[in-house]
Structure formats: C-alpha cells, structure tokens
Design a protein around this nucleic acid. Structure first.
Lengths: 120, 120
DNA sequence: CTTACTGTGAACCACATGGTTCACTATCAA
DNA sequence: TTGATAGTGAACCATGTGGTTCACAGTAAG
C-alpha cells in the first residue's frame, strides 16, 4: 500500500510536465529514439534522456538499446490506477455536489411552502 | 490552449503529493479548517496552508474565511480534463497493445501453418 | 483588557527539477 | 583507421518544493 502511494506520486509527477506528456503523445503514434525526441522537443540529448528516464521510472515508457540507438516505446502501465483514483474522486465530488443540489432543492421547496403559508 | 497545458501541469503537480491527495480525500467526506488538516497530517499550520494554497490554485479546493477560521471544501473543478487526458491515452495505449496482440496472433497462425506444411 | 487561538507572511533550509555543457564511450560507415 | 553519430554521466546552475521557525494580525472569550 506504501508502494501504491509512491507510484501515484511518481506517475502524477511524471505527467505534470508538458514535455513528458508530449513524449507520451508522440510514442502513442510511433516509437522513437532519444535523438528523435530531443529534436522534436528542441532539447539536448542529455535533457531528453532525463525525461525518458523519469517516464521509464514511472513505468509509462520502456526502452531498449540496440546498437547505439535506444528506442523508446509506451510502457506496460496503462494509467489504470491513476484513472481509478481520479474516477473515485470524481464520484466523491459528484456525490457531494449532488447532496448540495438536493439541499438547495429542499430549501427551495421549504421556502415556497413557507411563502404560501404566509400568503394565507 | 496554453492555459489547458498549464492547468494540466498544475493539477497533476498538485496530485503528485501524498499529503495533498490525503487532503482531497478528507475534504471529500467533510469540510475542514486549516487547523483540522494540519493536525490530521501532523504538520504546522504554515505548512498545511501552503498545500491548501496549491490545491486552491489548481482549482481543486475552495476556501472561505469567516472570523478567524478558514474553511476548506472541494472546489468546482472535478478533474474532468485530467480524466479525459488519461482516458485518451489509455485508449492510445490499448490500441497499440491490441495491434501488438493481433500481430502476435497473426504470427502464431502463420507459424502453425508453416508447421503443418512442414509435417506433410 | 487580557489572554488564547487561527491564520498569514517572511525568511530560511535541504533537496528535487529542468535544463545546460563538457568529456567520454560505443557503434556504425567509409 | 578515421570520422561521424547516439547516448551516457558528471558537474553545474537557477528555480521550485516541502517543510520549518518566528513574528505578527485579527478574532473570540474570559
């Protein structure tokens, strides 16, 4: 369960950078080398390597080096846990807002009733 | 569209801390003051205030100060965009893995056919 | 009025992040 | 062999982060 939290930390942190989200998008359409990615995102090889390492650490990307080129592709983790976390909280959110809506409706009805009583 | 990326940055960054996710969980069940939250998460008021500010910045929490106590509650943003982003990428992931599965199936069938041809 | 409580802001600290340059290794190709 | 290419690692830098302490302001309550 400790791992679960640490993994959420790592994944959300990995996703919190626009370049890394871009890399994931790119890898979604085709695999790429470090050089490819560095060029596409106007960055040094070293810089891109760091991003890729972070994504790899989070399990979002896997890489394989053959010859001198390291090919990056989407990893095994498909963000199930993160999606589940967000979905759970969306439901919590909704539940609370729905409750609020109901309360408002209730108050409205009550107000209307009071109003009518007053008129009599 | 720039705002969209910046907002994803802010939200994912906000979610990448276990304390802040905890605060969201807490606020999911009931509103709380800074003091409440600070106690629950064993932290100074100042420290908790910072977390709350970050969540507020990301639109995940709203606060209101009445008298000397600031009450924190869940914000208006319900992580729709983040859920959508993740969902889109889960689909990309799936599509690619499905393609891989198909390829594997194709190769298996081919192998089997070759195998049978060989046996004759 | 005095005291206690809730929050805020500034300053500080250690450490992480996002990026660079530079020096180096390993591989491919002529 | 020579040269270009792809990546790696160490060192560095500015800035951000997660936390603290301390001093202070506003509010509540005796």
């Amino acid at each position: 369960m400790v791992h679960y939290q640490a993994r959420l930390d790592a994944t959300f942190a990995a996703l919190s950078d626009v370049t890394r989200r871009g890399v994931l998008e790119q890898l979604g359409s085709s695999n790429a080398s470090i050089t490819d990615l560095a060029q596409r995102f106007h960055m040094t090889l070293t810089g891109m390597k760091k991003h890729v390492s972070i994504l790899e650490q989070a399990g979002l990307v896997t890489t394989e080096k053959v010859g001198r080129v390291r090919t990056c592709k989407l990893g095994q983790r498909r963000l199930e846990e993160e999606a589940a976390w967000i979905e759970r909280h969306r439901q919590l959110w909704s539940a609370r807002f729905d409750a609020l809506d109901e309360l408002v409706e209730h108050l409205k009805r009550k107000e209307k009733a009071d109003d009518q009583r007053k008129r009599r």
